[in-house]
Design a protein around this nucleic acid. Sequence first.
DNA 1: GGTGTTGCCGAAACCGGTTTCGGAAATCAC
DNA 2: GTGATTTCCGAAACCGGTTTCGGCAACACC
Lengths: 362, 362
Amino acid sequence: MEEITAPRGPGRRATITDVARDIGVSKGTVSRALNGHPDISDATRLRAQKAAARLGYRPLGSAQAIRTGRCRALGLVIETGEHDAHRPFLAAFLAGLSDGAALEGWTLTVATAPEGDTLATYQRLIDDRKADGFVLPRTRLRDPRVEMLRGAGVPFVLFGRHGDPEGCAWFDIEMEAAMRASVARLAAAGHRRIAFVGGSALHTYAQLRAEGFRAGMAEAGLRADLMRFGAVDRAGGARAAAALLDAPDPPSAFVYAVDAAALGLWQAARARGLTVGRDLAVIGYDGTPEGAHAEPPLATWAVDTHAAGLRLADLLIRRIRGEAPEALREVGQARYLDRGSAACAGPGGAAPSDDDTPMGGR
Amino acid sequence: MEEITAPRGPGRRATITDVARDIGVSKGTVSRALNGHPDISDATRLRAQKAAARLGYRPLGSAQAIRTGRCRALGLVIETGEHDAHRPFLAAFLAGLSDGAALEGWTLTVATAPEGDTLATYQRLIDDRKADGFVLPRTRLRDPRVEMLRGAGVPFVLFGRHGDPEGCAWFDIEMEAAMRASVARLAAAGHRRIAFVGGSALHTYAQLRAEGFRAGMAEAGLRADLMRFGAVDRAGGARAAAALLDAPDPPSAFVYAVDAAALGLWQAARARGLTVGRDLAVIGYDGTPEGAHAEPPLATWAVDTHAAGLRLADLLIRRIRGEAPEALREVGQARYLDRGSAACAGPGGAAPSDDDTPMGGR
DNA sequence: GGTGTTGCCGAAACCGGTTTCGGAAATCAC
DNA sequence: GTGATTTCCGAAACCGGTTTCGGCAACACC
């Protein structure tokens, strides 16, 4: 049992006492100078800052935490068993959060929890002071995490909007517009019977995408009567497609709320002697890499999850620092990826347009 | 700017002072009792433990950290831009690490870093005391992270073995045996010309899998003369397959070191009028979900990354607590998933066996 | 020239733990 | 019964910061 210890030689990390001694003031003065308290003269503040930089002083998070209650860490609790819903985005999303946190010298504490039982995990991280606030992915319409954290006075920011916006900060993608645009494209290509296959009914994203679809159909003067829900993976997407294709007056085009489900259409079509991109048009949403490898590749809306993570980290840090949640709400844009699965004219006969324009900047 | 504060009422968290007062001893005594120091009587220790449990006392990590230098957190630095190599496993792997850490009341600090520049990120986490030790995924043959952490005296554990095992603890999957078994299966099915497509030359896993293949070929009495390297994604796998198929005396079977690359064989085969599972046999490695959706589905070796995360967390915690690295080395087994892509007899003509037996325990 | 202010900083308490040191009581040796 | 050990615990220092409190100068006011 050899004991492991951090190096403790003369090259040890500089403490606030070292800085204080260096410029001949008390350590309380250095603390206030570095933290921007107004009762320190500019001259002293400058000396403290220079000395801190020269000595390489960086306050020790755990020492600050014990007094301030802040540990400069963002918390993320990932729900497992969610049919791997965010698996494709996870790496980029984590990178965005981590990068955004690092910009302010913060870090990221990650935990996982079984689907129904996440609240205890949040509580544990709060109690242990392992996170000053949380990013909540996959917002639900009524989200128990929101109620719990709101009640406990713990800062949080949503990735997605929430039914009751009171006290909520968020970043979200404006997916209604994307769905409307999907319908518009398909309608412009001559499709009259356009079906929608949505995701989990509990989540905000599912509702917003369905609303966008309905709005698009209304704008196109079409009836939104071919709608299915609850398809979040390939198998679910295939079942929904099968039911829709077997009905009388079946659709010639599909809008899927989730790429992973959209890939199920290939199976259902093949089983019925139909070919996607020739007999059927489909546009998905998410931009999962698997879609690019389908035959033909899946047209979809790509979300920059790295950028989303960056924004969420920034919003959460500002929230923790005390900014009002109402001032911390942003929406980003998805980008359309035109691909073969949408290049199929409907019975109306118009040729599909073939641009690949981003929807709004970023 | 409303200020956010943790609830501070009478229901505030119990401190060690509360416990001490409750049983009428000093807080130093409680500390020693709870931490297993030998100079505390069993009676007092028991009283302290009971009082702590009754009051719900749990030591505040940041307060301990300032004195002990330990924050009870495991560190994981994910390299971004690695052609998304571990994207499919990331969620399960994180869950395993998080669960394993939680078993001991520890947490997980995650950071990301661009591929070449991870050392600074490790240093930052060490300096900020955000992690007591690290899990190093994707071990390289000569790994700068190992040298750096070994030099700094920071505990770590590898996911994968290392060229220089000095001071290294690890968990790894015994992939050589899996590769040997892949070759044996294909040879038993009558294949004589078996090709190997390997991964990144810098990483340990690539070398071990190639060695396993060579050993398998030797056992089968075949020449391992059809080998390509550097294929880690679908495109790379397709290029390697194309080169091998276009050569004189081409292979009738493939062993891929990486599932993601193996999926490239479908493209290369189709372009040449060949069908996987009928004209060509292939066995991959990794167990990525995409393989199950190929047509025919990809036979492969599944790795339980959740279990791997659990083991790594346990090993790292024990390493941090001072156990010798030589005692902290484990290997797990991959499990063969027999699927259609391997069900194709070679020119030798033997029918493939069709079992799906696990290779060893878990 | 006294008397409030105001600006700026030092001293010390404090946060919640750990660790060192020493001493009282109990046990042991003889 | 006395001296030497052990056993067990309290007091206090300590870790590296933050925050409260108060005091000393310098300045303004009349």
